[in-house]
Amino acid sequence: MDTSTPTHHKRSQCDYTMGFKLQVVDAVEKGDMTYKQAQKIYGIQGRSTVLTWLRKHGKLDWSQPTHRIMTKSPQSKETPAQKIKRLERELEDE
């Protein structure tokens, strides 16, 4: 009988340098990569770590949420068949 206690593997927490954080934030804000791509490329474990860095150290204003209102265009009432025909006509015109 095995009497050893089960071992629990504690996830390690990394401390990143300020220079590293700013490098990641700069790359994301330039559009070189998304924050999820940055997590994967740089091996950052936390799901919201890069987002937190963007809010703290980024140049974008995160204080005001953006509300986007989608207007309904006349094309939004098209059936799929109507949309296909319209797109085929536009393609022929090209």
Rank of each mutant, 00 (worst) to 15 (best):
M1V: 14
M1P: 15
D2A: 04
D2K: 09
D2P: 13
T3R: 12
S4I: 14
S4K: 15
T5W: 09
P6H: 13
P6V: 12
T7F: 13
H8D: 10
H9L: 08
K10S: 12
K10M: 07
R11C: 07
R11K: 13
R11H: 08
S12A: 07
Q13M: 06
Q13D: 09
C14Q: 11
C14G: 08
D15L: 10
Y16W: 06
Y16R: 04
T17V: 02
T17A: 03
T17E: 02
M18F: 05
G19Y: 03
G19L: 01
F20S: 10
K21H: 00
L22G: 04
L22N: 06
Q23F: 06
Q23H: 07
V25L: 00
V28M: 03
K30R: 12
K30Q: 03
G31W: 04
G31M: 04
G31D: 01
D32S: 10
D32G: 06
M33A: 02
M33T: 02
T34F: 03
T34I: 05
T34Q: 05
Y35P: 11
Y35T: 04
Q37W: 01
Q37E: 10
A38I: 02
K40Y: 03
I41H: 02
I41W: 02
I41A: 03
G43D: 03
G43I: 07
G43F: 03
I44M: 01
I44E: 00
I44K: 04
I44V: 12
R47H: 10
S48N: 13
T49K: 06
T49P: 01
T49A: 08
V50D: 01
L51V: 06
T52M: 11
T52G: 07
T52E: 08
W53H: 05
L54G: 03
L54Q: 05
R55M: 00
K56G: 03
H57S: 06
K59G: 10
L60I: 11
L60K: 11
L60T: 09
L60P: 05
W62K: 02
S63C: 05
P65R: 11
T66D: 08
T66Y: 10
R68S: 04
I69Y: 13
I69V: 13
M70P: 05
T71D: 06
T71V: 13
T71E: 09
S73V: 04
S73G: 09
S73Q: 14
P74K: 15
Q75S: 14
S76Y: 10
S76R: 12
K77M: 11
K77T: 11
E78L: 15
T79N: 14
T79I: 12
A81N: 11
A81P: 10
Q82N: 10
I84D: 07
K85A: 15
R86M: 08
R86D: 07
R86K: 12
R86H: 11
R86A: 08
L87V: 11
E88V: 11
R89I: 11
E90V: 12
E90S: 13
E90W: 14
E92H: 13
D93W: 13
D93S: 11
